[in-house]
Design a protein around this nucleic acid. Structure first.
Length: 372
DNA sequence: AACACGGTCAACCGCAAGTTA
DNA sequence: ATAACTTGCGGTTGACCGTGT
């Protein structure tokens, strides 16, 4: 398998393309179609190598290329697909019509990757990493005006700690973590005092945990049933590889495979196509207790768009945990649910058809070969 | 105004797989 | 089977630009 010497020829132009060159290339491809890149430059009157022409066409001149900033939905999709595919930019681009692999790769490296790092998420594994986390950005520490030496957590602080909770074994680790976060630097002698100051905070969290445990208890029971069902299903993933949090890819209709249109307001039809992927995104039940008994699910993202105020959003649970543990962990202090709990909401919406579509759903859920 | 710095992204490079003779 | 060649991919580079000092 010899190497292509296509660019070795001396005298070939490199660097940015001129408008004239672009016009030549577009004109030629419109007439003769693309392909045979080796002979194309000569035939088109270009002093470029075929490789350069192909790249220019596929990454810039192609008429179906979408220009402009990535939408929120596109960004979510990239993150989600990357969590499955890794740096398979062409495979990711195949799911984003109008976007090139080069564009997605650039966007990942310049925007998404850095954002994930700031949020304490390993951009390679998509797992939360405390050592990556900019802790100071998490907490809006402030002094209570009436206090002399105590930090009083804001609601945002509570949510930030909740997001970290999957990383700790509640409550001892969380106490240590919270204490570390709130301790002034180089003040080890005050550690114990700080922990005492944190007790009211942790009591608040414990109370809220109790309330939320009640709220998710139903989901837990059915999630366990779903897990049982899942374990009977052959799938493409080995045990332990089961994505912990799965959710709909939130693709816009025009980003989805034809026929894969999802209407959240309706239970899925038998055999419907779904794009469930592990993600940084959490499906969360509505934090508002008044909405707890309906199917008012919403999507929460770790991506800070400035418009997402969903309670409980934050860092996803580590993806290395086995599925059983994940399902059982649905009753945490967070309002995050597993997809199985959420699926149950959907299934419960139409018990009569549940037996028909749930097997298909789990099968689709676990089949990532489509992404490869 | 001049410079440094960082972000962005088009373009290039090198490799591997596929195809053809 | 082998070599020559094509195509596609992912990683990297460097020019350009905006911003801060």
């Amino acid at each position: 398998m010899g190497r292509a010497p296509c660019c070795d020829r001396a005298g070939l132009k490199k660097g940015p393309w001129t408008q004239e060159e672009d016009e030549k290339l577009v004109s030629y491809i419109k007439k003769h179609g693309q392909g045979n890149w080796r002979t194309l430059p000569k035939n088109a009157g270009l002093e470029r190598c075929g490789k350069s022409c192909r790249l220019r066409w596929t990454n810039y001149l192609r008429p179906d290329i979408k220009r402009g900033r990535f939408s929120f939905e596109e960004e979510e999709t990239i993150i989600q697909l990357h969590s499955i595919l890794g740096n398979k930019w062409s495979a990711i681009a195949a799911r984003l019509p109008g976007r090139t692999d080069n564009e997605i790769k650039n966007y990942w490296n310049t925007h998404i990757r850095k954002r994930l790092l700031r949020m304490g998420i390993d951009p390679v594994t998509h797992a939360p990493r405390l050592d990556f986390l900019d802790l100071t950005s998490l907490l809006n520490k402030h002094h209570h005006p009436a206090a002399t030496n105590a930090y009083y957590p804001t609601q945002a602080d509570l949510e930030a700690l909740r997001a970290l909770e999957p990383l700790a074994s509640y409550p001892a680790d969380l106490l240590r973590l919270a204490s570390t976060l709130l301790s002034p630097p180089n003040q080890d002698q005050q550690q114990q005092q700080q922990q005492m100051l944190l007790m009211p905070w942790l009591q608040i969290m414990a109370q809220q945990q109790q309330q939320q445990q009640q709220q998710v208890s139903d989901q837990r029971a059915t999630a366990a049933a779903a897990h049982q069902l899942l374990m009977q299903q052959p799938c493409g993933l080995a045990a332990g590889q089961m994505p912990g949090l799965v959710h709909h890819a939130n693709l816009q209709e025009d980003h989805m495979v034809p026929g894969c249109v999802v209407d959240y307001a309706q239970p899925p039809a038998a055999g419907a196509c779904y794009d469930y992927v592990p993600a940084l995104m959490h499906m969360v039940s509505d934090a508002d207790a008044s909405n707890n008994n309906n199917n008012n699910l919403q999507w929460s993202s770790t991506v800070d768009t400035g418009s997402n105020n969903n309670v409980g959003s934050g860092v996803s649970t580590p993806s290395s945990s086995p599925a059983a543990g994940r399902v059982n962990s649905a009753s945490t202090t967070t309002t995050t649910t597993t997809a199985f709990g959420a699926l149950n909401d959907v299934i419960a919406a139409d018990d009569a058809d549940a037996g028909l579509f749930d097997m298909q759903l789990y099968s689709d859920l676990l089949d990532v070969s489509d992404y490869m």
